[in-house]
Design a protein around this nucleic acid. Sequence first.
DNA 1: CGGACGAGGATTTTT
DNA 2: TCCTCGTCCG
Length: 806
Amino acid sequence: MENIVEQLNPAQREAVVNFEGPSLIVAGAGSGKTRVLTSRIAYMIASGVAPHNILALTFTNKAAAEMRQRIESMIGERSRWIQMGTFHSVFLRILRAEAGRIGYPPAFTIYDTTDSVSLVRSICREMMLGDNEKYKPKNVFSKISRLKNDLITPAVYAEDAEFAAEDRKRGTGQFLEIYKRYTAQCKANGAMDFDDLLLNMVVLFKGHPDVLEKWRERFRYILVDEYQDTNHVQYLIVKALAMGHGNICVVGDDSQSIYSFRGARIENILGFKRDFPSARIYKLEQNYRSTQVIVGAANGVIARNEGSGELKKECFSAGERGENIKLLRAYTDREEAEMVAGEIRTLGRGGNAHGGLAGASSQAGSSRSEPVPWSEIAVLYRVNALSRGIEEALRRRDIPYKIYRGHSFFDRKEIKDLLGYLRLVVNPRDDEAFKRVVNYPARGIGEVTLGRVAAAAREKDISLWEAAVESEDRKIGAFTELVQGLSLRRAEMSLYEFGREVAVRTGIIGIYRAEGSAEGASALENIEELLNSMAAEPDVAIEEDGETTDGGAAGGQAAALTLEDWLGNVALMTDMDSDDDTENRDRVTLMTVHSAKGLEFRHVFIVGLEEELFPLVRDGDSTEIEEERRLFYVALTRAKERSFVSMAGSRFIHGSMAFRRPSRFVREIDRRFLDGSVMDDAMHRGGGGGGFGRADKPTWEPRKVGTPTASYAARNVVPVVPDARFRKVSAAPSRPADGETRTPANSDFAPGTRVAHAKFGRGTVEQVEIMAGAASAADLKITVTFDSPAHGRKTLLSKFAKLEIL
DNA sequence: CGGACGAGGATTTTT
DNA sequence: TCCTCGTCCG
């Protein structure tokens, strides 16, 4: 127990040891927040609290995994009984256990944003609102999402006359009806979207006090990370669970609240003391990460925000003074990128550190003449669009880099398609999954056929799947048989084998194998990665009781990961969770400031420090500016040794060149900490569109269309599985007699055949392929090189292009 | 199906 | 300017 606390400073120690009752830990950037959180949990357990009674909530899987690992290294195997994870994943477990109480099947599906938007789209179409731009599915859905996060259900919405008035004014009178249908459809499909995973917790607790009571008793100690990022529903759930025992510990930093756009409420952390008047507040003010310059500059900047009252803290650096922040001013965005790349080159110069050997020392405070590993350098920007210029400049100098973008691994088509089948197997009511895969791989089920199924479903008020099963259509029959066949085999094999079986038998793998392109290879690789995750160990079931089986390493481990659980995990996972394994290690990192939160680098470049870009605001709303300022604070405090800030006097924005004014944030950095000044430059004086320095001779050059971004070279791919299916098809193009094969002389097409086309004239057949998953041999893909150079080589489908054989 | 084409939009992102 | 999405067409 002593050893847990030993290494902590007094403030940290206080925050760790006093684990009874409500606590608010205000943790400045780099103040050892995770350490305190994990030590506190370890300390609790060492003091006799059962791991089983601890609930620890984070926002990202990454944070949860990191915490779990650190706790495990402190207390070992017992840590697995701690209920730890993201809000969504923990609540998912609870909702699975309680699904029946709120009218959901235990195997309910999770809709990601794409599913949700496409459901909204089909509802809009159904309501003949399809092409009305007041009802763009994306916007409608984001409104629905916002409402749910504020606990405004369709019923609540309907009661409020103001909402109706507002909608009428804006010409969105149908919104409520869409919202209603969306909610009803999700429920009918046995599906919850991301917001439902939170909202339904409130529904569950409100409607079933006994259930709430049960979980309250279970989670006698609750910890919440990044509390400043919680939204209203999350706040309510946490509060509901903590009421009574009051053992709630929230950790956060109001200065780093940067997610209001997705519903985060900084008031949650600011008002914690009001919610729990007996709360004790601990402030972690010593920064272990950065130099005095960086902490000092960041403090100065954030001080411009309206004070945060009780939570106000005074961060100080434990380290050396460090070098000043360097300001890089450029005339153009192109030049800015060059300057940044140049500085990076200088930092990382010196041959052998980057030769692929482990290389440069990474000890803090190492002599500055030593080359810095690329991985210790980051370029941060406010918007992703700024990455391009930086990328090009880095490429020109052969500096390796990697880019983080927001999109999810599970947004990839190949992944969604495979998941679609798996989802359908688990939950046949999932209409979105049905629609996604019913004709993929193509099996000739078109709009008409599908329309009939949909009509039947609507008429009898059953799911698409049920309607499909009843359908007489032969193609639909083939589809349902395929899925039923797969379902049957599910019990016979392990999850991993089953996944593979689905990938192969549906033909998805065949499609990508046949492609033979880099994209196809990467798709196969992604599929492989997905399948591999099916072999993982399951988490401890939420209802398992740690106390009864406690101690034995094998305790409660018999159960294998179920498909339902796996699908749940997968739906709640993102790209971020599965990166840095590869040899992509020693690279400069390019990312948005938002995604850099929580990370640290020795050297950080913050680019595009110009008004209307950073801060990026339309009007001058002070709450918005304050959030932007916090964002800048986050950016600055990522650096351990040195920060660089850069700006350009002119920049291409949406294709046209615009003059830029330096960001107010740069001026807010105390001059003592800044090398180079904004004020004394001609660049600043002119302002506006008028006189920008000597802008008569701009140094920018016309944009070249860059080579396609290829920061991640396609890796060599081992075929996922020898693909018998595709081979068979292509080797035996003649079709088994199924009564529908009266193709006009398909076999006449062969490489070398001379053909004529109505529009393109004459040509020679190069290649003939059967389309994967084709329902009939009529679907031939024919590549023809036309005699006329104007038309060149084209790929045609025999079904459509009326080719004449000469 | 998949390629071609035109319109419209273009923060920040997790789950 | 450039990328994404939806529609049209062979």
